[in-house]
């Protein structure tokens, strides 16, 4: 640990308290959100899930609309073949040699590996203990394919929670990223997402995960003369394939 540098926390917090002229303890005027009982958060989350499932069609339509405005290439696949075919054609067009993907259920619904291999590409699974990794450096991949944990219609955002089987960099290192989205993962807005993740933390604490990423279209910069350049450190091309058949 770091010893002997910095200000001890009690002292620091006491000095903040003194600056505020406040006594220790919770806020005098409580903040509604923070004094809410867990049961009430759970109730709200349940109501949210019900609303989402009732409005699923509309939310998926809105997701597709907004995501394409935010720079995603959106494809609404009508079936497994259509989804696989889309990724196949994309890989063909890009002359893809190396593909990395995560380990997620969605690849059971959409088996991509054989199709990609038939193109002559090698598919690497970015997970520990995976044999195919070998001496492969994921930084050399030219296509990254992942599922998502949520997709937010309001902002056209794919939300990924890295964990076992889901690396932080599968969607970051390759210049092209494909995200597979199930309609059941679609949320209406940011409020839904944060409510659900808040509840996950209240339930599971440290086990709720170490990281959460929102991805909205390609990486970009406008730092030189305010001129937009698509493709900075992250992918320059992002595809959202919506698995639009009852998943």
């Amino acid at each position: 640990m770091i010893e002997g540098v910095g200000t001890p926390s009690e002292q620091f917090i006491a000095s903040v308290r003194e600056a505020l002229g406040r006594k220790a303890g919770p806020p005098e005027r409580p903040y509604a959100r923070m004094v809410e009982e867990r049961a009430s958060v759970e109730e709200r989350a349940e109501a949210t899930m019900e609303r989402l499932s009732a409005n699923r069609r509309a939310n998926v339509d809105e997701l597709a609309r907004v995501a394409s405005l935010r720079g995603w290439v959106v494809h609404r696949a009508e079936g497994v073949e259509d989804a696989v075919g889309y990724v196949y054609q994309l890989a063909q067009k890009l002359e893809t040699r190396r593909v990395v993907r995560s380990v997620e259920d969605v690849f059971g619904d959409v088996p991509l590996d054989d199709a990609l291999t038939s193109l002559g590409a090698t598919v690497h699974v970015m997970a520990r203990g995976d044999e195919s990794a070998g001496s492969f450096d994921p930084a050399d991949a030219d296509l990254g394919v992942t599922g998502v944990d949520y997709a937010i219609a309001e902002t056209g955002t794919a939300v990924i929670l890295p964990r076992r089987g889901v690396s932080r960099v599968t969607s970051l290192l390759p210049p092209v990223h494909v995200a597979l989205v199930k309609p059941s993962q679609t949320l209406e807005g940011l409020d839904d997402l944060y409510l659900l993740r808040r509840l996950a933390y209240l339930r599971d604490g440290v086990d709720a995960g170490s990281y959460m990423n929102f991805i909205t279209g390609p990486s970009r910069t406008a730092d030189i003369e305010q001129t937009l350049v698509i493709g900075a450190h992250g992918p320059r091309e992002t595809h959202m394939v919506i698995l639009d058949w009852g998943l």
């Binding site: 935010r70 955002t157 995960g209 170490s210 990281y211 959460m212 991805i215």
Partner: peptide
């Protein structure tokens, strides 16, 4: 309307995670 990335960090990687920092400090 939103930036390309919004990143949320909850401390270091968990033991089962594929990657992420082993140590996390907030100053």
């Amino acid at each position: 309307r939103i930036s390309s990335y919004v990143t949320h960090v909850y401390g270091p990687k968990r033991p089962e995670d594929e990657d992420g920092p082993e140590e996390y400090h907030l100053i």
